[in-house]
Design a protein around this nucleic acid. Structure first.
Lengths: 343, 343
DNA sequence: GTTAGCACTCTCTTATTATGAGTGCTAAAT
DNA sequence: ATTTAGCACTCATAATAAGAGAGTGCTAAC
């Protein structure tokens, strides 16, 4: 439906606009040596491309700007696979001293991604529903307070401080910890509340005194929702984009960035691979004029998180896509290697 | 040096400007029933106040705007103590189920502070140099990887994952943990590297095999600087201030907010109590047109952190000062209570 | 099918001209 | 000796007008 020449022109226009952010006109195009046609010819083709919906004008006599349909076509057909070299080795550098700091790896990756692109990157920590309990420990800090620590098989550590119910002795705690470890070892986090309710409760009744109150806080302790953590990289970098030259635009963007649960929903990327959402393809009002790219990474054991990048629809898709592919692979590699799961 | 009437006028002008952000003129002032003088009289007084440096004009024929000296005088002499009622109970609500989540308390406080003021709040986590080791644990996750957990007497939990040096058996780990707990219990965090070097090293030499490599990673493990954590509240709220109606202003502000170490330096508030830095009183270029208020809070055991609020020099000092006093007290209360230290 | 030529459109910049809030100063009023 | 009214003057801001420039669409020639 599109001639080769039209495709070629479309590509050049989009490349140019991505680079300059200014509507591109026929004269300027014909001067480029990539297109050996006169301005008039190009004008005709552009008119056709506009009619087919791939281009738009900002006003009657302006140059052309890619439409969302144009970008979509560009992303789907016009950019070849081009593996990106930059950014590789970022994570390796962090882990090659043998110390593996999940938070630090993710944070660094997010910052690198943003730095290399000048867009805003967001990384979603892995969902930990499926991680299982490796060890539970309760450590008294004083007569009244204690800290409970839970380690998962993936090496994540959750901890929570709390006040000890009155009348709980240190031997009680010891018993409790034994019961918990005995019964909860290997249990997936999402099953915890249920298992506590069904198995642990009765055991506690049998072997401990003053259980009623204790049971309550144990439940609270482990029922706290395991919120997915967000790691932002360079929220300020996106301000360099000319699209953000408007104060209200900035306001609405930053306001959205603070509504973390909405962001989480936005990013949850159940399907594998890389997904590109251009402009109105996004559900959320505030980014209907932006593009969102998400990619998943895996930490093994079926757990995964999401890497995302938000920028203007006029995004350097070529660069970004290969970069995200690289980083997602790198993260999956680093994490997977970590605990031997080669999934 | 200033007459009562001048003081009164100064106060009204500042109050008005804080509220409206617009230069205040003599006509408008004389209409207010607080000042029973004609516009001309007020003009004369304003001219005097300008000569003494308390007021400024934005251009020859504009209304007056408080100078930094004016704000300074206002803060030092013109606002009485007025305990703020809002915001109290925020933290109590979080802790009264017996669960004490340090991060959550601080984060909530920061958000509340920003929400109530529409400025940007930053809370510095406590410096933990003086916290002491309560327990150290190393938990193997697989043949190759393990996680080390350190709990302090204040209930903070630090953890780090790492790859096990080859040739380290699980009995080695057990020995190691015993040595570490034996020697490091009660040792302040800032002394850790030293103590490890002097005491632990020799013991390890004596009782363990293949120590050379192990020692190295243990040192790395605990030498990682204990970075002070920053908690931001509502970075977007400050955008509501008319002072931030300029894109470049926003850019430079957010750029600063990402240079976390600079922020930490800026906020470290060694002296007790509340400190107000107005405009050029600040060292950092990017906030020479803003005001910074810092207050310290204590978590007991001599450890403390800092609460800070950044807003335009045209800040609601009255409200902000009492509010910060309240929150700082509330946090100190909640935390101090926590582990029985009533310092 | 391609291109040169030309009239036309629309934005953006710059210059010009009000408009109005506010000041400083002088002279009259209290 | 203060206080106040009156008035000329200043400067920022808003509104209007006039060009300049880039780009388009269409027609006619190549």
């Amino acid at each position: 439906m599109l001639t080769d020449r039209q495709l070629m022109i479309l590509q050049v226009i989009i490349d140019d606009f991505i680079d300059s952010a200014k509507p591109v006109g026929s004269r300027a195009l014909s001067k480029k040596d990539t297109l050996p046609y006169s301005a008039a010819t190009i004008r005709n083709e552009m008119a056709d491309l506009e009619e087919s919906g791939f281009l738009e004008k900002t006003h009657t006599s302006s140059g052309r700007v890619p439409s969302e349909k144009g970008y979509r076509y560009y992303v789907d057909h016009l950019i070849g696979p081009e593996i990106h070299q930059h950014g590789l080795g970022i994570i390796e550098k962090l882990t090659n001293n043998g110390i593996y700091e999940f938070e630090q790896i993710v944070q660094t990756a997010a910052e690198a991604l943003s730095e290399l692109t000048n867009y805003t990157s967001i990384i979603l920590g892995p969902e930990m529903f499926e991680a299982t309990v490796k060890q539970i420990q309760v450590l008294a800090l004083s007569d009244q307070s204690a800290v409970a620590i839970l380690v998962t098989n993936t090496g994540h550590v959750e901890h929570r401080s709390f006040t000890l119910p009155t009348g709980v002795s240190s031997s009680d705690i010891e018993k409790l910890v034994n019961i918990l470890n005995d019964r909860l070892y290997g249990v997936a986090l999402y099953k915890l509340p249920e298992v506590i309710q069904n198995e642990v409760a009765s055991l506690m009744m049998r072997y401990m005194n003053g259980v009623d109150s204790s049971l309550n806080w144990i439940r609270t302790l482990f029922t706290q929702e395991q919120a997915v953590k967000l790691y932002f990289g360079g929220k300020a970098n996106i301000l360099m984009q000319p699209e953000f030259n408007d104060v209200d635009r900035i306001r609405s963007f930053y306001a959205l960035m603070e509504r973390e649960d909405e962001i989480v929903n936005l990013l949850k990327n159940s399907n594998q691979g890389i997904k590109v959402s251009i402009g109105h393809e996004n559900e959320v009002e505030e980014i209907k004029d932006l593009s969102l790219i998400t990619a998943s990474y895996h930490i093994g054991g079926g757990q995964m998180g999401t890497i995302a990048l938000i920028g203007p629809t006029r995004m350097e898709y070529k660069k970004v896509l290969s970069l995200m592919q690289a980083i997602s692979k790198e993260m999956t590699g680093a994490m997977g290697k970590w605990y031997g799961d080669k999934s």
